[in-house]
Design a binder for these strands. Structure first.
Length: 856
DNA sequence: GCGGACTGCTTACCT
DNA sequence: ACAGGTAAGCAGTCCGCG
């Protein structure tokens, strides 16, 4: 991120403040750090005072690089020593130092003396943003506290005042198991450094959310680049209950009645005062260190900025600074929550897949239990106060996404930025592969290791990629055990704690250790592959992922069980634990993702291969011990009525043979397995029901079927013994029959009958086939514009297209047969394995064609 | 010309 | 712009058939 503020002098003193973001200030050509002071709730800006400059490396000698010397933007070329992890050697490289980051990269056009160095010669470390390089080189960590005294910046650790923390540190000390570590001491140090950083207090963050409404011309979305439509309202919601709406009067629009509470101030502007309204909004925004939006990178902020320019506001009077694909603040920090909520890692691991699409409404419903305001009116039909209420409400929802659940989202962002060594706004905007990239780059710099180029790594994988591959996949993944179909009572689910990270640690897997250059390591082979791993050096990813794993498994898991925690500590440990989970879950995946700069297939392949080997060997051990394995998926085993001794035996053997921690995850009173993998139902001893993979729970299934399914589960949850099952079956049969009748009699409201599906691309991009949900979407042409990522609701109808969007559907055209079939197949997933034969009731005999015979 | 078998596309889920 | 493994429904195609 590049801003243009220009040189300002750094503060003489700064109270302990947390580093939250960084940027490159093009005007002063310096790195710019942004610190947050928890006391004043304001920001301190700090420009580099060390003379640090952008640079990259080349393997050419300074003589061979002589042609660069003449460039005015190249300041220096010198010889330095760097370690190459992949070659396990030290080498001399040329460090090319420049006056401006654009001299290193980002200017691919022009003559050889104008283009960036990385576009002229082969370079290393030239694709790192300058402010990142700056942070790494100075070992400045986002999320740490710093203070300034007499103009000197220095880190301060906030005292962790509780004795619990110290006591648990000794716990951590004992629990570190070195395994085959070459440098055990270093590993311990590494973990305790992490704990020190992650236990630093997370401050209360002062923030303001912003949402705008823009006058729109019939059917055309306002363009944030052109910004030629009037901004009609600006909603603002901030910490400490701050709420304000700025509303532009438009001729002919009634004022209406104020529905907003007394604390929410509504300010009206005359039609010709739009510029003043925007100026006032800017002024409020500038008084907050953090600005939140929902899709503000793509819409709200660029629109505001460009509209301001169009209305004659000067660039220097706008607090905003637009970049290619993000909107930033010159002084503050902008967090676009739309990007955050769309991040699969947050969606799945932090929020347990509670929402399935990323609209503000869906996310709010799932996480806050609140909806957007719906007056059932078009924007141009709303009164001024209605617009105000609507606009403020959106801002409020956006704000509340960061405040619900004790502010877990802000805490997560801070914690992940500590781990990734990355500005908080980047954490909120970028994907997990970028977080892990940043973390690993930092560690390379700490160790003075040259970061490899993609083709350095690609060269080492060339000879092994041609192997037999799975269709559409690059390598084989986890093992899924064929389930033993039936109802099983007393089932224990065991799983390996963080299996893949454990494997990465124990088997020393990293891009430089898998297929390392040492001939003597080749005997350390990886089962089922042609790979081996190093026995001489600890791999860098193995060290880092391994210590994060140990931190989570040995430290934060026990911490969260402590009962003497204060509320603040509990919140902090929850955030750390979740953040570690998110990063660990992705750590193996990125090694096999070709967008990841340290992409190295053999390492990913080795991880899953050892995973399969581990679970297979454990199953063998079960058989030896007389334990029946009913099912298993990747890192879990469902075992039937094991004794405590048998469980302990398995745990001990897994640790002894594979160095992994097998644990009891769940104990089911009973468990319904079908012959399908990744499909089951388990009832815990507490009566809690786990449903996995069954259609009755999937988000595209019509609500009335999902409800019936939930009702059935409730009945099943009460079943204590095989005998009670028989009664439950009767109850369930009746429920299903009733539902069948309702379908036939068209007694179900249309919206309950709608299938709902996500469009993974724009409707026009479906060229190979035309799936049902797309046929429905096309019928909405001119009524509602559908984009990629939107969901479409449709019902199944008789006649030609077979589907109709919910908006235009009528009950009379519902295809009851299709619904009966879908109901039958959905319910059958549970009932078939429970020996409930519903065929008699529901299934339509092939030869019969009429509904009335079928339901009779 | 039609229907079953088959493949491929698409979405949603599990770990 | 983390991975692979699996289920399900449907679209489209191929093949056989007096």
């Amino acid at each position: 991120m590049r801003v243009n503020i220009g040189e300002s002098s750094n503060p003489e003193t700064m109270p302990p403040s947390m580093l939250v973001s960084a940027a490159y200030d093009g005007a002063s050509k310096k790195a710019l750090l942004k610190f947050y002071d928890p006391k004043s709730k304001g920001l301190y800006l700090w420009w580099d005072e060390t003379g640090h400059k952008p640079y990259c490396y080349s393997k050419l000698s300074p003589e061979e690089l002589g042609h660069l010397e003449s460039r005015s933007d190249i300041l220096d070329i010198s010889r330095v020593e760097k370690h190459s992890l992949a070659d396990d050697c030290t080498m001399a490289v040329s460090k090319i130092t420049a006056g401006d980051p654009l001299a290193i990269g980002g200017k691919p056009y022009g003559s050889d003396t104008e283009r960036s160095v990385r576009d002229i010669i082969e370079t290393w470390e030239s694709d790192i943003k300058y402010y990142e390089t700056y942070l790494y080189d100075r070992r400045i960590v986002v999320g740490r506290y710093y203070k300034a005294q007499a103009g000197e910046l220095e880190p301060v650790d906030i005292e962790i005042s509780d004795e619990v923390s110290l006591a648990l540190k000794s716990l951590l000390w004992d629990k570190v198991d070195s395994g085959s570590m070459v440098d055990e001491e270093g590993f311990r140090k590494c973990i305790s450094d992490w704990a020190d950083l992650l236990n630093q207090p997370i401050p209360e963050i002062k923030r303001l959310s912003v949402d705008i409404e823009v006058e729109s011309v019939e059917g055309r979305l306002p363009d944030s680049k052109i910004a030629d439509n009037t901004v009609t309202a600006i909603g603002l919601a901030g910490t400490d209950g701050f709420g304000r709406v700025l509303v532009l009067r438009t001729p002919g629009t009634p004022e209406g009645a104020n529905e907003l509470g007394p604390d929410i101030k509504v300010e009206f502007y005359e039609p010709d005062c739009e510029a003043q309204m925007i100026r006032d909004a800017f002024e409020i925004m500038e008084s907050y260190p953090f600005i939140l939006t929902y899709n503000g990178d793509d819409f709200d902020l660029p629109y505001l900025h460009n509209r301001a320019m169009r209305l004659g506001i000067k660039n220097e009077d706008s607090p905003l600074h637009m970049l290619k694909d993000s909107a930033t603040l010159k002084r503050g920090i902008h967090i676009d929550l739309y990007k955050t909520m769309s991040n699969r890692s947050f969606q799945i691991y932090a929020f347990g897949q509670k929402y399935t699409d990323f609209s503000l409404n869906s996310v709010s419903v799932a996480l806050l239990g609140k909806q957007k305001i719906d007056y059932g009116l078009k924007f141009d039909e709303m009164s001024l106060y209605q617009t105000a209420n609507y606009c403020y409400h959106d801002a409020l929802l956006t704000y509340e996404l960061t405040s619900f659940g004790d502010g877990i989202l802000m805490n997560l962002l801070v914690t992940i930025s500590r781990i990734g060594r990355m500005p908080i706004d980047d954490i909120a905007r970028l994907g997990v592969s970028q977080w892990i990239r940043s973390l690993l780059y930092y560690e390379h710099r700490v160790r003075n290791c040259l970061i490899p180029r993609r083709d350095d790594l690609a060269k080492r994988t060339k000879e092994v990629t041609a192997d037999a591959v799975i269709k559409d996949k690059k390598y084989r993944g986890g093992l899924v055990v064929e389930p033993q179909s039936g109802v099983h009572f007393d089932v224990v689910v065991m799983d390996f704690a963080s299996l893949y990270p454990s494997i990465i640690k124990v088997r020393n897997l990293s891009y430089e250790t898998v297929r390392c250059p040492h001939p003597e390591c080749r005997k350390n082979s990886i089962p089922q592959t042609k790979h081996w791993s190093c026995s001489k050096r600890n791999g860098i990813t193995s060290m880092i992922i391994g210590s994060l794993r140990d931190l989570r498994v040995n430290y934060y898991k026990s911490l969260s069980r402590k009962e003497t925690l204060t509320e603040v500590q509990r919140q902090q440990y929850t955030a750390v634990s979740q953040a570690l989970k998110v990063i660990l879950n992705a750590s193996y995946g990125v090694m096999g993702a070709d967008i990841f700069p340290l992409y190295f297939l053999p390492a990913a392949e080795a991880t899953t291969a050892i995973g399969r080997h581990t679970i297979l060997e454990t199953i063998k051990k079960c058989k030896d011990a007389g334990v029946d394995v009913l099912y298993g998926d990747t890192d879990s085993l469902f075992v039937k009525s094991p004794t405590a001794e048998q469980v302990q035996y398995m745990i001990d053997e897994a640790k002894k043979d594979h160095g992994v921690d097998l644990e009891i995850d769940k104990e089911y009173r009973y468990c319904v397995l079908s012959n399908r993998k990744k499909n089951y139902l388990g009832v815990s001893k507490s009566g809690k029901v786990d449903v996995k993979g069954l259609t009755g729970k999937k988000s595209h299934t019509p609500p009335f079927i999902r409800k019936l399914f939930a009702d059935i589960l409730e009945v099943l949850a009460g079943v204590q013994s095989p005998e009670e099952f028989e009664q439950a079956k009767d109850v369930v049969s009746k429920m299903i029959q009733e539902c069948g009748k309702k379908i036939e009699n068209l007694e179900i409201p249309l919206d309950e009958m709608a299938f709902s599906m996500m469009l993974s691309k724009a409707p026009s991009e479906y060229t190979k086939t035309q799936p049902q949900h797309i046929r429905a979407a096309r019928q909405l042409d001119g009524i509602r514009e559908l984009k990629r990522g939107d969901r479409i609701s449709f019902v199944k109808t008789i006649g030609k297209p077979g589907v109709r969007p919910l908006e235009t559907a009528r009950k009379g055209e519902i295809d009851t047969t299709k619904y009966a079939e879908f109901l039958e197949s959905t319910i059958e997933q549970v009932t078939s394995t429970m020996d409930m034969d519903f065929d008699v009731i529901l299934k339509k005999p092939k030869q019969a064609g009429l509904d009335q015979f079928f339901w009779g």
